[in-house]
């Protein structure tokens, strides 16, 4: 059977937009996030998925950009100016905390930007430990750091519970994992 041109076009359109198991692709970041053809790397999402942090080049230096994922609106991060290159951004649930690596004092350092109090909190590491990657827990209670020592990578986890106020995760104890039949 031959397909009419309109039916064929419709099938192609459906095929282009659909992914298996109901996964939906958000329209191109070029259009929504307003970066044109600019390169962006190392994405991080707030726990609720509302905010997107990513790295873009500004004056040739890697700089973290924080945006509302849906509107593309950019949030200012004044405390991070002049501390590029930035790397490995990580966000808490509501995006109150942004953990990342910055360049300070001639070395790469771990900092946490508390956007609620407008403070930049450094996490000093011992001796010649060099941080490579970070991951902040959604509630801000823990930070995992990939460290390089003697050319070997290892991961250490820090409890920040006595240092940071928690960024509340709604229903974290009562909620149910999406798409699963039971709580793990």
């Amino acid at each position: 059977m031959l397909l009419g041109p309109s039916l064929l076009s419709l099938l192609l359109l459906v095929q282009a937009c659909s992914l298996p198991w109901g996964i939906r692709r958000q329209p191109s970041p070029r259009g929504v996030l307003g970066l044109g053809a600019e390169s962006r790397q190392d994405p991080a999402l707030s726990g609720d998925g509302r905010l997107l942090a990513s790295l873009v080049l500004r004056s040739g230096r890697s700089t973290v950009l924080l945006q509302d994922r849906r509107s593309g609106q950019t949030m200012p991060l004044p405390l991070l100016r002049g501390q590029q290159p930035h790397s490995s951004p990580s966000l808490s649930w509501n995006g109150r905390y942004l953990a990342l690596l910055v360049w300070r004092g001639g070395r790469r350092q771990v900092v946490i930007n508390d956007r609620a109090t407008n403070r930049l909190l450094p996490l000093p590491l011992r001796g010649d430990q060099e941080a490579q990657r970070l991951s902040l827990a959604p509630d801000g209670r823990h930070l995992a750091v990939e460290l390089v020592e003697d050319g070997q990578s290892r991961v250490e986890v820090f409890n920040l519970g006595e240092w940071l106020e928690p960024d509340p995760v709604p229903g974290s104890l009562l909620g149910q994992a999406p798409g699963s039949g039971s709580r793990p």
């Binding site: 996964i23 790397q41 999402l45 994992a177």
Partner: peptide, 28 residues
């Protein structure tokens, strides 16, 4: 890649034609 803690959004850095882009996927 990054996955939102609620498990609903996936952000993927993808290399295309010499450019790095971030793809955003919403999961059911």
């Amino acid at each position: 890649l990054a996955l939102s803690a609620d498990g609903r959004v996936l952000a993927v850095e993808v290399g295309r034609g010499g450019l790095s882009q971030v793809d955003l996927l919403e999961l059911p």
